[in-house]
Structures are given as structure tokens and as C-alpha cells.
């Protein structure tokens, strides 16, 4: 069964949302999803850019009150 894990990386200056996502995907199975919350706008664009490079899919990206949520599905 595919799982969805949430990482609340709001206000996380180091290692930051993208690094948390990379670490979480290493432990995930193919098809699992990781929902990363970030209060930094840069990550909201870095995460989809990195996923495009590596081949994971962004299934949802949304802006909320003061933070961004990006849901990534592990593709390989």
C-alpha cells in the first residue's frame, strides 16, 4: 500500500525542505508520497525543479496561509 508522509519543514533553516524531501524519498517505496510543507518560497520552486531533474512526480503544489505544500510521488 502506498503511503503519504508529511514533513512540516516550516521555519527549518537547516537542512531545509528539499534536503528533508531527498532524505525521506530514500526511505520511501516507489509510489509513496511525501507532502513537504515549507515557509520559504525558494523551496516551493526548488522542489519541482529537482523532481523534474531526477524524475519524481509532483502530484500537488499549493499555497496556504504563509506556507507552501508540495506533494511528491517517488517514481524510481
Amino acid at each position: 500500500m502506498a503511503e503519504r508522509q508529511k514533513i512540516d519543514a516550516r521555519g527549518a533553516f537547516c537542512p531545509g525542505p528539499l534536503m528533508e524531501l531527498i532524505a525521506a524519498l530514500k526511505l520511501a517505496s516507489i509510489g509513496d508520497e511525501v507532502d513537504v510543507w515549507s515557509s520559504d518560497k525558494g523551496s516551493a520552486s526548488d522542489i519541482p525543479a529537482w523532481c523534474a531533474k531526477v524524475g519524481h512526480s509532483v502530484v500537488e503544489a499549493s499555497e496556504h496561509d504563509g506556507y507552501w505544500s508540495v506533494v511528491v510521488r517517488k517514481a524510481k
Binding site: F13, C14, W50
Partner: peptide, 10 residues
Amino acid sequence: YPIGRLHALE
């Protein structure tokens, strides 16, 4: 380095 800069801290 894993992300788009040389260190996690901007």
C-alpha cells in the same frame, strides 16, 4: 552537494 547551493544554510 545535494541541493542547488553549496550548503543547506543560505
